[in-house]
């Protein structure tokens, strides 16, 4: 499965060596503004990190620098009995789901974009409409289903609802639509079958979109709360967000712990994003060399 995600970077027959002029004053202004905007964007996040380093006598002062920085909150979060297991569970569910989604959503998106057959618009609208039902109304039937199949408290039970998404299908359909039909025709003349045309010719062309989709699906599953909450009762099967929810309660919410937990939970997605970013950039550079 990972091949689908990494392939584009290896062989993207793409173009784009857009004339990028030497820095002009306008460009410098743009970079400055973008940088300022970026700093504004991360400020709340920085506050979160700062708060996670404070003890509860300092936490409500909202200063950016803790007077007496402490790692106590992290020690307490990481020391929570189930933490390593929760982390692993989340990672497993997010990784498997992302693999499945990349494969199926791009396959379906491609089919809807490049094939003409009767029933196509209906299939597309039906898949798109799955985006429009709030998860809140789906979890009850899922639960009944899981119970009937014995999936409660299993990894399969955690991940089955997310194996394909209307969101990813729609995204991939939009990107496959910009793939020129001539390339597909050429593949056909070369004697490739339809699956090979998709896999070898078209998929590598939508590399940036696949990388973006991978990030969003991973992120979506990494932070998913409602279904994991309901699908498992055994604390060992908790995912990270469900485990971290235990830090807020009826009587008191330990904000230092919440912030430390949120910071720890953020790291893997940040890593995934930075890694995939590189693929995007490399894919484009390769394309530039070829054209």
């Amino acid at each position: 499965m990972t091949r689908a995600a990494t392939r584009p970077s290896a062989a993207v027959p793409r173009h784009r060596s857009q004339a990028r002029a030497a820095p002009r004053p306008g460009r410098i202004l743009a970079v400055t503004l973008l940088a300022l905007g970026g700093i504004v964007m991360v400020m709340p996040f920085v506050y979160m990190l700062a708060t996670s380093l404070k003890d509860n006598s300092e936490i409500f002062e909202l200063s950016l620098w803790p007077r007496h920085p402490t790692l106590d909150n992290y020690a307490q979060v990481l020391g929570a009995s189930g933490f390593p297991r929760w982390f692993f569970n989340s990672l497993l569910v997010a990784a498997v789901t992302t693999g499945s989604v990349l494969f199926f959503d791009s396959l379906v998106g491609y089919t809807l974009a490049k094939f003409r057959f009767c029933g196509r618009p209906a299939v597309f609208v039906a898949i798109l409409s799955t985006l429009m039902v709030p998860t809140e109304m789906l979890v009850l039937p899922w639960y009944t289903m899981s119970k009937a199949m014995g999936w409660l408290d299993t990894y399969w039970g955690l991940l089955f609802p997310g194996l394909m998404t209307g969101f990813g299908t729609f995204l991939m359909k939009q990107f496959f639509e910009s793939v020129p039909d001539e390339l597909i025709e050429a593949g056909r003349i070369d004697g490739l079958n339809e699956f090979e045309i998709w896999w070898r010719i078209c998929l590598p062309l939508v590399g940036p979109a696949l990388s973006a989709l991978a990030i969003f699906v991973f992120l979506g599953n990494w932070t998913a709360f409602l279904w994991p909450l309901i699908a498992v009762a055994d604390t060992r099967m908790y995912t990270l967000p469900v485990g971290l929810a235990s830090f807020s309660s009826e009587l008191q919410t330990e904000w230092g712990l919440i912030m430390a937990g949120a910071a720890v939970a953020t790291m893997p997605t940040l890593v995934v994003f930075v890694l995939l970013q590189k693929y995007i950039v490399r894919g484009i550079m390769l394309a530039g060399l070829k054209v």
Binding site: L34, A35, V42, L219, I258, A262, Q277
Partner: peptide, 19 residues
């Protein structure tokens, strides 16, 4: 720069709403 703009998207609502 892109990472800076993307950071808010990976945060959790409960923690950020507090801030």
């Amino acid at each position: 720069l892109r990472a800076l703009y993307f950071v808010p998207h990976i945060t959790t609502a409960v923690a950020m709403a507090w801030v």
